[in-house]
Design a protein around this nucleic acid. Structure first.
Lengths: 234, 234
DNA sequence: TCCCGTTTCAAACAAGCGTTTAATTGTACG
DNA sequence: CGTACAATTAAACGCTTGTTTGAAACGGGA
């Protein structure tokens, strides 16, 4: 049967993860993967059936623990709060911190896997849709429910939107770390992603606490006076 | 010389934009593009030199006006404020609204181009790095300077980080609209992207106004050991 | 030892890719 | 008209892609 270390299978997964994270799924050939893994080309089809099967395996290995951690973190936060709505900041951390830990722990993939996750919602969107949408949806719905209790004045669809903002704010800097370097100078990159993700917590907390956007009137007064310009053309 | 309507060139651009937005650059073949444009295969290399040249042309056509609008919007906001720091909300709108307008105006590309832009920072990152990094960087630096004046207590690197959060929060829902549908139900998609982007403004305003994260004291690490005390703020 | 299922291997496969060629058509101008 | 240049076309180029094949090597149980 399969060895516990299963060198071939594991090395294919590691090499594929590395290359997928670096240059994307579509542009990574099986030959590049098997060369890096120092394994025969046919081994991929033998162990994973197809390239698609390999892609699914690569992502599943990382996404499942991540989603499990997010759910269990949320349960803990709720349990600690008793029956009352938990603190918004705790909920944000329950969602964000598992990603930070993923990036910190080489056994879970380390920095490489962060870039891999960043591609989940773009390059690998097809596979994601096919294989993981259900599980991820469950996670988001759970968080949405809790957030609705914390922010009873915020309409459900605005909660959903802000959750999407949060996912984007988390995903983009992870995926585009090196691009960010070009765009904003080196300082963003000299600090590690962990620091950045921790700074995301107060940003998201404040964003969620922003007053609801009233649907009939275009804008209600924000937290501060807003004078000056009428809305000018583009 | 080139015709003003230049049917061949324009139809290649339109078809490529459509397919790039739908399935990405790497997985879109020149044959698929020319078939959709009902144009000969060799026309791409004749008019654009290579596939890379086509990719650059497709993105340049949309990115240049977008960045120009963001810069001129910012100038207007600053001019309207006189010498004083402009309102944060105006600055956020100056950054976000051009994207909304892009999605509303079919002449500028409409919804298709929104998905295209969503891929800018992932799939097309290579081309982006090569051709557009400089221009985009200039835009971000200008905004960063203005934000530094509005939020003097926020360290520059945290401004950069929050700008990255903003870009992500804007990019992701645009790029992954259909994925969002699967994840959070249909409501997110029944409303249009424009509404969503407008809701992003107060979210981002509040996020930027969040107090700076002090660098020396680091938060207790995990969700496990943490009192769920409400953080006083706002 | 032999056997048998599992795993590895080199080689080849058809299909699709971006690009190039050389010939043809279209079109404006002297 | 005829010439010159721009644009289009069908066909082919060489190369890479994911996948399959059939044989070789491995590794414990009888």
């Amino acid at each position: 049967m399969t060895n516990l270390l299963d060198s071939t299978r594991e090395r294919i997964l590691a090499a594929a993860e590395e290359l997928f994270a670096r240059t994307g799924v579509a542009t990574t050939s099986l030959r590049a993967i098997t060369a890096l893994a120092r394994v025969n080309l046919a081994a991929v089809n033998y162990h994973f059936g197809s390239k698609d099967g390999l892609v699914e395996a690569v992502y599943r290995r990382r996404l499942e623990p991540l989603n499990r951690a997010r759910l269990s973190n949320l349960e803990k936060v709720e349990a600690a709060a008793g029956g009352a709505p938990p603190a918004l900041e705790d909920v944000m951390e329950a969602f964000i911190v598992p990603v930070v830990k993923l990036g910190q722990d080489p056994a879970q993939g380390g920095p490489t896997v962060m870039r891999l996750l960043g591609q989940t919602h773009t390059e690998a969107a097809g596979y994601f849709r096919t294989y993981f949408a259900g599980e991820y949806r469950e996670v988001l719905e759970r968080y949405q429910d809790v957030l609705a209790r914390i922010l009873p004045d915020l309409p459900p669809e605005q909660i959903k939107n802000r959750l999407a903002f949060l996912v984007g704010a988390m995903t983009y800097p992870i995926a585009e770390r090196q691009l960010l370097e070009l765009l904003t100078g080196e300082e963003v990159c000299r600090q590690d992603i962990d620091t950045m993700m921790k700074q995301l917590v107060p940003f998201a907390v404040a964003g969620f606490r922003a007053p609801p956007v009233s649907s009939r009137r275009k804008r209600a007064s924000s937290t501060r006076k807003k004078s000056s310009s009428t809305r000018s053309r583009q």
